[in-house]
Design a protein around this nucleic acid. Structure first.
Lengths: 176, 176
DNA sequence: CCTTTCTTTCATTTTAGATTGAACTCACCC
DNA sequence: GGGTGAGTTCAATCTAAAATGAAAGAAAGG
């Protein structure tokens, strides 16, 4: 396989890579995603050139299987891009925050919200079968949860917008 | 032990409880907290009267140990309150969204952000030791992460504010 | 103070779900 | 249209973290 390997890395570059791998690995973990997925994103984020799967596997030290699954998930998030290059695929990270955020929101948060929304509807129908006093209390509590729920649903798109191009909402201008 | 048990529950009330237990259990899980903690909050949320630990244990079907740990975590979040009543402690959920959110932010998010902030500083110092071309690329990428980081840090307090009493930020007035 | 019983603690067990690795698929190249 | 090797799949394995439960702690009641 004749593909240029980037000239041997300096020690400090390796450390740099490992730092980003670990930061993104933990970020993934924090939000309930597999650590290896974050690590894959981390190594791509650190690299100025597209990487092959083999390269990724070698540098983060997890199995090809994990890398393959991770890459696919990240593609679905919109956080990495694949270019097919003859027989190889090579991968690049999209450096913009918004892809990660909105991928996460679309693929993890929204489905869950929809599911619990269903449960809430079922609970609501239970209330009619309760004795009066109980029903009143239950209704009050259920309304609270429902309210949270819809607030969260409204909040998500706003949050994405703010995090994308936010300076005017935030106290200090952090540039773009 | 002479403590009034709430008069036997109707079947629909039990279902109602189980629904809230499961909703909050999954919510906890979604954000990387132990499911049982969410379940504890759920049963308290559903109850118009304060509950003892024994009552909680019985209704959500997990061990006393888990309930004890869960209650303590929720108290630290500020999401439940304890009243000591003679020999017993009894517990009540605070129904406001903001306690859960800000508890989560304070106790899980902020510490993590601080940790990765440390890693970022270390990485920054590595750049000086890199060959010129490499250093330039690395700097660019590191700045991106740092920017995200500070944006998130600025965003969190704002998000809390929005979620607390948000109507004016959100398209529809969802009341208070 | 000594007993009782609620509560915490923490060593052990369990479990959810992430990772592995080998078999398989499929696209490319000759 | 084989043969090669990149990439995927998925049953088996591993592991991090949650749940358990029994023993220790602590505070109220006598």
């Amino acid at each position: 396989m004749q593909v240029m390997d980037p000239p041997a890395e300096s020690a400090s570059r390796k450390e740099f890579e490992q730092g980003l791998i670990s930061i993104f690995g933990e970020l993934a973990d924090l939000f309930g995603n597999p650590r290896s997925h974050g690590q894959v994103y981390g190594i791509l984020f650190s690299s100025p050139v597209p990487l092959t799967m083999e390269e990724i596997t070698k540098r983060i030290g997890v199995s090809m299987g994990s890398v393959s699954v991770g890459l696919r998930a990240l593609e679905e998030f919109g956080a990495v891009e694949r270019q097919t290059n003859g027989r190889f695929g090579v991968y690049t990270a999209r450096l913009e925050l918004k892809t990660l955020i909105s991928g996460f929101v679309r693929q993890r948060l929204i489905p869950r919200l929809e599911k619990s929304n269903g449960t809430l509807k079922e609970l609501s129908s239970l209330i009619d079968q309760m004795p009066d006093e109980e029903a009143k209390e239950a209704k009050f509590r259920l309304q609270r949860v429902t309210q949270w729920h819809s607030r969260a649903a409204q909040f998500l798109p706003l949050a994405e917008k703010i995090l994308q191009s936010a300076p005017k909402f935030l106290s200090k201008d952090v540039g773009q």
